[in-house]
Design a protein around this nucleic acid. Structure first.
Lengths: 339, 339
DNA sequence: CTGAAAGCGCTTACAG
DNA sequence: CTGAAAGCGCTTACAG
């Protein structure tokens, strides 16, 4: 099981390594069919694989892409990874998935690591304010990169984003149309654009319908389930609201748990709407109403964009439209008296 | 932002590239502190990073590890990935995570890809019967590998496993001690050892207590939520059982959904116990009783083992003990009449 | 259509 | 303690 090199193929076929290299790289079609065929045969036979180190040393390409996500335990991201990976592999790239655990120090470490690993490009889904300098590292090192799902400032860099403002707006509007007046909100991390935009859209909906929202109706969440549970437990104990918008489904899960423990019935006592549409939304009892993102698609398109960027083709940011998914966790306010 | 090479450092410091290389690789301590210090200074100053292609060409090491999981959407695996990744990074390795989607063809593709990418070792958490030949590829290519969580036959290769038999046994025993006599089971894929062992342990518990189990009490699941939902919906409609063991939590989620839609109350009409202890178990209503695995730990230890193997140190398979976690989805049979 | 040669950026015996 | 030189396995002008 010794590893063969291009020399072995050359010797075996009687051609020079230059020629072997050429057919392996599909260079210059002006080459006899015979030669090509013969060489390919032997390559197959000997199960020869080019050494990527040697190849990379010259081409400066690794055919690897990096993807940094903030929290692999949020089912949103595995879904995103799946889309990204499928697209990457279909284009001859492999994907290195890194989990920054929402720590900008880890994020920085991974960016450096990916750079040293000579990836051809990186997908950054992990931005927060603290990491503006991390983006600097990326820019400085000239590695092509694409922002995914999260960005500091959409105008700075190319990326694939969701219209989070509209998503928040849809969530707010849905609750309002159900007759709710006392509506709470659990935001995502304050330093993340997508979370801010969800909040802004939500507030805009309330404003348009002249529904006031006292500041203590707003909880600052961090997109995590545990924290959401802790906060909701306290918040709901002093229950005033009849509806709640959780800025992602993971936090909605935490809210469910808190509500259940406090004997607050969803949706009879409290309507809850989430954001993302993770698969577990359908398992929750009652099934979770939410704002759907095309997560898998976002992953795929991000890689497409990144590959274009690597090839120096012009790229433009992509924006997706979220949609409202009404299930069983939101209900009309009047119905409460029937329960 | 041009990239510096070892030559630049040599020129700048006045030393030869051999010397620079030596200090960079911490070789031969017999080297003047002065030299070392000066070179390190310049390296720092110029922010020099060695080219991994050139380095790998000689050392034949990439400092990359591969991890193939069967289903990244099952929260069990992100948790496993986190453990593996943390341990990998702490040891100077990066982790390439691949998702085989339970397809042995994809699994094979990834094994080849990782091999071509010249990873130093691979973690295989994705074995099924169809892939015995995939293991062959791994063996042939001489890449060190470790089986994680799943194995064809524990004796074949080194790995990190859970005592699945005991886990199944604990689940069965728990249900029996609660007074159940009609107990159903949804298995994992028939061709996966860990799933078979869970079933065997479960059956052993029933046998010890002289509890018969007709074959139609057993559903062949595939560890996925959707399929579990479909099967459970049919199974529970012809409801005979008072308790059900789902061989993983993801399937338990599907069972919950089916039960809910059929208006079957858990645990009053049906006790349910899962396996894995994924975070969502605590969000389900009622909270899911389950068999806990130290998933994060398993990930970490797998990487430790793999690194040992890479260094040609002796390695032995690791076996973890599962524990029973009783929450609210399982209850005493008599209590049903009170509800 | 094909080959000889240079060179990518390192590491590692081998000398001294 | 340090340097010159060979070589890792490829690709790519340059010739022919």
């Amino acid at each position: 099981m010794t590893k063969y090199t291009i020399k072995d193929i050359a010797r075996e076929t009687g051609y020079s390594i230059s020629t072997v290299s050429r057919v392996l790289n599909n260079k210059e079609e002006g080459m006899s069919k015979e030669t090509r065929k013969r060489i390919l045969e032997v390559v197959e036979e000997m199960n020869y694989r080019p050494n990527q180190f040697a190849r990379g040393l010259i081409t400066k390409q690794s055919n690897m892409l990096g993807l940094i996500v903030p929290n692999i335990s949020n089912p949103f991201f595995p879904e995103l990874c799946r889309g990204a990976e499928d697209e990457a592999v279909n284009n001859g790239y492999s994907l290195i998935i890194c989990n920054s655990d929402d720590q900008s120090s880890k994020e920085e470490r991974y960016i450096r690591l990916l750079k040293e690993q000579q990836v051809d490009g990186v997908l950054l889904a992990s931005m927060n304010k603290l990491t503006r300098e991390n983006e600097g590292i990326l820019t400085d090192s000239q590695i092509p990169y694409i922002l995914v799902d999260r960005g500091l400032d959409v105008s700075t860099a190319t990326g694939v984003f969701m219209d989070n403002f509209k998503g928040g707006y849809l969530a707010g509007k849905h609750l309002i149309e159900l007759g709710h007046q006392k509506i709470g909100c659990m935001t995502g991390p304050v330093d993340i654009t997508n979370s801010n935009n969800r909040l802004k859209g939500f507030l805009q909906a309330l404003k348009e319908h002249d529904i006031p929202i006292p500041s203590h109706y707003i909880m600052n969440g961090n997109y995590h389930m545990e924290d959401a549970y802790d906060q909701a437990k306290q918040f709901l104990a002093n229950n005033e609201v009849t509806a709640l918008f959780a800025s992602n489904d993971l936090m909605a899960c935490g809210v469910y748990r808190a509500a259940f423990e406090l004997d607050i019935s969803i949706p009879n006592d409290l309507s809850v709407i989430g954001f993302d549409d993770i698969p577990f939304g359908e398992v929750l009892n009652p099934k979770l109403s939410t704002i759907r993102q095309n997560t898998y698609q976002i992953g795929k398109e991000s890689v497409k964009l990144l590959i274009k960027k690597i090839h120096n083709e012009p790229v433009e940011s992509l924006f997706y439209e979220p949609t409202l998914v009404v299930r069983k966790s939101t209900t009309k306010l009047p119905e409460r008296s029937f329960s």
